[in-house]
Structure formats: C-alpha cells, structure tokens
Amino acid sequence: MPRSPHDSGTTCRLHVSDEVRALAPGFGYLAVEAHGLTNGPSDEAGAALLDEAARRLAARLDGRAPQDDPHVAAWRAAYTAFGSKPSRTRNSAEALARRALADGGLPRINRLVDIYNAVSVAYLVPVGGEDLDRIQGGMRLVRATGDEPFVTAAGGAEAVEHPDAGEVVWCDDEGVTCRRWNWRQGVRTRLTEDSVSALFLLERMAPMTLDELAAAGAELARELRAACPDARIETGDIWTP
C-alpha cells in the first residue's frame, strides 16, 4: 500500500513536497536500503549484467528511440513542466538508454553503480544510489529556491553550483544531492568503492505500473544480495501521491 510522503519504509527519512506532487501526480518511488555492502572496481559479473540489460532494452524498444517509450515520454513531460528542456537535460534512464544503444555501450563505474545502472536500463526506470553515511538528515524532493549548494566536479576539481529557481531537486540538510530530479548526481553523496551503506531510489511516472516498479526493486535487491551476500537489504513500500 502507498504510504505518506514522510514514510518510505526505510530508516532514511524521505519527503516529497506538495509542490512536486502537484507538478507530477503520476510520480512514485521505491526505496531500497542496504547495509554491510562490499563495493569495489567493476568486474566481469557487473559487465555481464550491463550487457544483458542492453539486450533487454533493445528488445523492449524494438527499434524505437528511447524517447518514444511511453515511460520516457512521461518523464520528458515532467521535466518540461518545471522548465527544463528534456532534450538537453535528459532523465537518467533515458541518458543511460542512449548510451546502452550506442557503439561504446554502458560505462563501467564500480560494482554497486554497475548493478543499479543495469536495473535502470533493463526496466527503463531512473535509479539512483546515495551513500547513506554521507547523507545529512533526511532526503527531500522539492522545487529549489535557487540558493541551495550543489557540489559537482569541473575540470577534475570540486565546484559548487546552484540549481535554477523552481527546478525539482533531491536534497538533504547540507544541500542538493541530485539536480533536475534525476539528471545529475552530486559528488558528495555518490557511491564510491569505499561505500558500505547505500540508499537506492527507483522513480516512476505513470504509465509505468506499480507492479513493474516493484519488479525492478526486487531485481535490484537480488543482484545486491548476489554481489554482497553478507549485506542487509531492506525494501520499502512504494510511495505514490
């Protein structure tokens, strides 16, 4: 059953603002929390997951471009609604799908990121991973004032940017963790090879069904357990407005 916007079913407190709910009433998310993870460099198992995900994506699209998929089209409409140009700043699932279909294929980042990227591509759903030990307070999905700090990388060094006023962002008590909903993750909370605890967020727009979202979350949990047998994985309830 859907829960309140203050209750994700996991220990990290999550909140979706009224402004975001009004903007996209078809939005929903599933949180998967993991503790006792063992991350590391990309390996053959992760590469196989990414390659299989690309094959599943190609079968799903059957020759269509990613933006012609109804779920991606719904995300594009949501981006347009808060003033972003979806062809310039694509949601994370569409961006990964385009890379999966290109000659270079999907990037290899690290074991944990490769796992959630594979799920994102296979189900064409935005998935993000945050280092729980670096999150300050709870996570909030809000429309930005424009003053919030966002730590990113520029020219190999950390730099601080600010979102546009009205932009939909995920943030914690220290600042923005992901800009334009799920377009670009900040460096402060991203998963590194040293990460041991993580919060994964799978985000959907109607017409993606809640059953499809649950299936994506279940596959993510299975792959995390396979890669990290000693980890404790908790899957929350699906949240919808």
Rank of each mutant, 00 (worst) to 15 (best):
E158V: 00
R222M: 06
A153G: 00
T80A: 13
T192V: 11
D51M: 13
L199Y: 07
R134P: 00
P66L: 10
E158I: 10
A48H: 08
L199W: 08
N39S: 02
E203S: 15
V187F: 14
A165F: 09
V113Q: 12
M208L: 10
L124T: 04
A154K: 11
G156F: 02
E223G: 02
G137A: 05
L213S: 12
R88M: 13
V187T: 15
R180K: 14
W75Y: 09
A198C: 06
R13N: 01
L141E: 07
R88T: 13
E33H: 05
D43M: 01
T209W: 11
H162T: 05
G63E: 03
I135K: 04
A65E: 10
D69H: 05
M205L: 13
G104H: 10
I109H: 06
R108T: 12
A215F: 01
F82C: 04
L14W: 01
C228G: 07
G166A: 01
Y123H: 15
H35P: 03
W181D: 07
A100M: 09
E193L: 01
R3A: 11
A95K: 10
A31D: 07
R190E: 15
A95Q: 10
V176M: 00
S4G: 14
R188D: 15
Y116T: 04
V142C: 03
Q67I: 03
R13P: 02
D18L: 03
C178D: 06
H15S: 04
R76H: 01
P5C: 06
C228R: 02
G28S: 15
D173T: 03
L210M: 15
L112S: 11
L124G: 02
R64V: 04
A78K: 05
G236Q: 11
F200P: 07
R3I: 00
Q67S: 08
D133T: 07
P107A: 11
T80F: 07
A93L: 13
